[in-house]
Design a protein around this nucleic acid. Structure first.
Lengths: 250, 250
DNA sequence: GCTTGACCCTCACGTTGCGTGATCCCGCAT
DNA sequence: ATGCGGGATCACGCAACGTGAGGGTCAAGC
């Protein structure tokens, strides 16, 4: 019932080197070492390896796994909670980074293809894909496809007009956000109503259904999140991101 | 206008060692090196450092930043998109890990405080806090506080009855999930109706409002996600997680 | 002119979790 | 005897610096 390194390695899906390493740092010692110096592992060690891999999978450092397995009275709960909190922090940070990257991408694209007369010019393919999947969930794939079909038939002037109007509403929202206007105020209501009317005129496949409009708008690059949810970033985001450092280094 | 290492380091918020390192790997060379061997930086280098820090902040590797800054024709868009995709993968993985950790924590707690007669016994403080904040967003802090007040006055028998009923509904849902029952089927409708009725009787501060019930239930440890959204994990999740490796190593 | 303290330099090892050789040993089949 | 498919032990390499060790330099006060 003794297994060699490669047998254990194959069975557990790790490399031989990994077993050597775990042995070297004292995390998993072989049950027995032959006269020839060979490492031999038993059932006990296999179970321990399983647990090691389980905690490793959770992202715990090898140095932390040893104590957890060795001390039965170890406070696994707190160890896990701490690790969980760290993970949440990393996720939140990752989301921030993605937002910044999206805005960077959009800015770069704006610079590059200013002449593009597409309705989606200046909006990253990622964001556009998100919009579309959002819209499909609310209105159905059929309705969205029909709307896109219709949009393709618009004249250049019509497209330019729509884009301008969209820009105006965007500018209004930006101003309100900047001023941290009360969501219940008349000014916000007016812009929201104008936005809703515009969306229903220009975009909504079924004008009768306003469900999800808020969330649809949520994904606009400038206003990510619902109105109550989160304040938007500055449009000159690159300048803003740079200024974090510029403030200190100039 | 020439700055020494520590001046630049203080201004940019990095360490002197970092500047040494960037010099060593050729990412940021000083504008000039004095006869004494001192590094002196100019405005040009400060701007470059800003950009380096900007991209570093996005999580790019130093080895990737050099080419981006040096080659004006470099495809920044694709570099950023690739990085974005990597970030999304990391986030998704992080969420999976957190779910597994939550279930592990809950299981450990179940083992430890089985005798706890609290309504929330066996549910992690994290999950409970999420439930509460969810509920507050739907019903308002006032209503939730009142409901908790009322719950505290329940007799032990009443609490036990509620928990048993909750367990039954949970078991029903689990079975349906396991069988991958059609969300529109009568069986699912029946359980959902029973659940709604139970929630409205036992918990809903305002019995007239069912808004958000779905999302409320979503956060139940066994069914994370809406019904259409995501299948639940096995209750004996630890065994399941372990079996990933057990299959291979036994 | 000398000391002092703050600042600069260049090694060079430590961190994390192994991957990837290089070189040598062991047992079994031909 | 020979070859091959395992073993074993170093030991360097990776990313992005942190952290001393040991030793020159600068500006200022005495």
């Amino acid at each position: 019932m003794r297994r060699t390194v490669s047998e254990v390695a194959d069975a557990a899906g790790v490399s031989v080197r990994t077993l050597h390493h775990y042995d070297a740092i004292g995390l998993l010692k072989p049950a027995e070492i032959g006269e020839n110096g060979y490492r031999y592992y038993g059932r006990e060690e296999l179970l321990r390896l399983q647990q090691i891999l389980f905690y490793r999978e959770l992202g715990l450092a090898l140095a932390e796994i040893g104590p957890i397995l060795d001390d039965p009275g170890f406070d696994r709960l707190n160890a896990l909670r701490a690790h969980r909190a760290a993970l949440e922090g990393r996720i939140a940070r990752g989301r921030d980074l993605i937002r910044t990257i999206d805005r960077t991408i959009e800015s770069l694209e704006k610079d590059e293809e200013m002449e593009d007369c597409d309705l989606y010019a200046g909006i990253s393919p990622e964001t556009r894909a998100r919009w579309e999947s959002e819209a499909e969930r609310f209105w159905g794939a059929e309705a969205v496809r029909a709307a896109q079909e219709k949009a393709r038939s618009f004249s250049k002037e019509r497209v330019a007009g729509i884009k301008r109007e969209m820009e105006e509403i965007r500018a209004d929202f930006t101003r309100l956000f900047r001023e941290r206007a009360d969501p219940g105020s008349d000014a916000v209501q007016a812009v929201t109503a104008r936005h809703h009317a515009w969306v229903s005129n220009s975009w909504t496949p079924d004008a009768g259904s306003f469900r999800g409009l808020g969330r649809y708008y949520v994904e606009h690059p400038e206003f990510r999140g619902t109105y109550e949810d989160e304040l938007p970033g500055c449009p000159e985001f690159i300048a803003e991101a740079m200024s974090i450092y510029a403030d200190r280094s100039l």
